[in-house]
């Protein structure tokens, strides 16, 4: 990567992978519709389950991230699984370097999960009037870092399960242990934000999230070649 020309071609190639997936998604709406419907149905079920009760802020913070986690599980594997199911992985291998594929698909998943999470939060605020976001900056940063972290871990796991036989059911099983540290941290930071804590109080959590994202992306970058090529 030291060579600036290589760096440029890597960026162009990554962008091409991202645009390909994005345009394919706009034509088929496969992942997006699954994710949106998942968020809607889950929120409806939770509204009915709580009845008229108004649960505590901590419970609500947890519930919000449970929705986000499982909706991510229903859609984030799509980008790799679709290539494998349609038999286009070979084509993509012929066209691009593994690194460009990894980062292009990672970018796609980040965009996808940010869209879905924004929707989930808006619906959540709409249906649960007791859910307060007292420190907006803290909340938005948590949501953004949480989404990126979720996407970064799910992308490499999706690449792994795309090569296995039972793709769908395996995804949450493999992802949960890897996402637990992320989920624990974002739930903590989210309840801080609804208590109206200062931004600086979330810094410890943000540091954990940023290093989590760095570690996961780094290890994915090193290991992706083994996953991508048989």
């Amino acid at each position: 990567m030291e060579d600036p020309r290589k760096m440029k071609s890597f960026l162009v190639s990554t962008k091409a992978v991202f645009l390909k997936d994005w345009r394919s998604e706009l034509r088929t709406r496969y992942a997006l519709s699954a994710l949106v419907m998942f968020v809607l149905t889950t929120i409806a079920i939770i509204v009915f389950a709580f009845g008229g009760e108004s649960p505590s802020q901590e419970v609500l913070a947890g519930v919000l991230w449970v929705i986000i986690f499982f909706s991510g599980m229903s859609g984030l594997a799509r980008t790799f699984v679709a290539e494998e199911e349609r038999g286009t992985s070979l084509t993509l291998q012929l066209l691009s370097t593994p690194t460009a594929v990894l980062f292009g698909k990672l970018a796609f998943n980040v965009v996808l999960i940010i869209i879905v999470n924004t929707l989930a939060v808006l619906l959540f605020l709409f249906f649960f009037s007791t859910f307060r976001v007292s420190s907006v900056g803290l909340f938005v940063t948590t949501l953004a870092l949480g989404s990126i972290g979720l996407a970064s871990a799910s992308t490499i796991i999706a690449a792994i399960i795309a090569r296995a036989n039972t793709k769908g059911s395996l995804f949450p099983v493999l992802s949960l242990p890897l996402l637990l540290p992320l989920l624990m941290t974002v739930i903590h930071a989210t309840s801080l934000s609804s208590e109206g804590a200062f931004f600086s109080e979330g810094l410890d959590d943000f540091r954990i999230l940023v290093s989590y994202i760095g570690a996961v992306t780094g290890v994915s970058y090193i290991l992706f070649d083994y996953v991508w090529k048989d």
Binding site: F10, L19, K20, T88, L94
Partner: peptide, 23 residues
């Protein structure tokens, strides 16, 4: 025969995709 092209793209888009992915 076992290589698959992208079904949801047109013939021309598939060719251009090849060029853009290769930077």
């Amino acid at each position: 025969p076992y290589m698959q092209l992208y079904d949801e793209f047109t013939a021309e888009e598939n060719l251009l995709l090849s060029l853009s992915l290769r930077a």
